[in-house]
Amino acid sequence: MIQRSEQVSLLSGFFLLEYLRSGRFLLELGMVIASFVVFFRPTGTPIRADHFFTVSGLFGPVLAALITSAIIGMGDRPQAYIILSHNVSRGVYLIGLFCSSCSAVLTMYGILCLLVALFNPVAELDLIKWVLATLPLVLNISLVSALTLLLSPLILSTGWRLFVLTLIALALSSNVVGGPLLNQIEQINPFLVTILRALQTLLSGPLVPIFYGYQLSIIGNLDHASAWANLLAQGLLLLAFLGLACYAFNRRDLIFSAS
């Protein structure tokens, strides 16, 4: 019997081919070229590594969200019934979609790096430094892809999506709903503020590896144990997102969009 890993690679290849032939990739390619022109065009002075990774560390995840949405859109159609009727499990189907999204995003990131290397090389960045700085960035890209997948209509119903988004908003709110605002609320209802602070602390926990990973890619230094621990945390978070997505996808009724 065919191995699941073979099926995943088959599906990834198939979705990538569909993504390329549909011409949708031109939009993302245009974005890559535009970002090169805006942020990294030759100006006479070579760009610094921290500048390159600060920009690409933000641009990569944005691109990941866009491309993953596009590829999930291709997977969330009645055509999927045919594929799933051919000995392809739901989990394999989902991981196939995820892998094709990641492959497309990483190809776009590769194109950006190539453009920079050809036309405006980063100062004092050799291949090893590039790989070390890229590693946490790639994990962040994968995390954003997995989160986009998890929050797609293919996986979660509208109610659950809103619930997860609320949790994410709460986790990110410590910078917004803090300081004076929280103090004002505390005067009215101290118990509510205690709960809010506890929730913010609890929910922002999973976001730490993402933000620290972003920082690591800018610094480009993985010499300390905490850096590798963070890479491990990013990997585990990725597995958790994918596991959750597969679990939810397995449990739900398959009613694809427009079917």
Partner: peptide, 18 residues
């Protein structure tokens, strides 16, 4: 058991770029 089943769907929707 899906490997023992052939399925012809109602709507003729297939991946059009192949």
């Amino acid at each position: 058991q899906r490997r023992l089943i052939g399925y012809v769907p109602e709507r003729q929707r297939y991946h059009s770029f192949c």
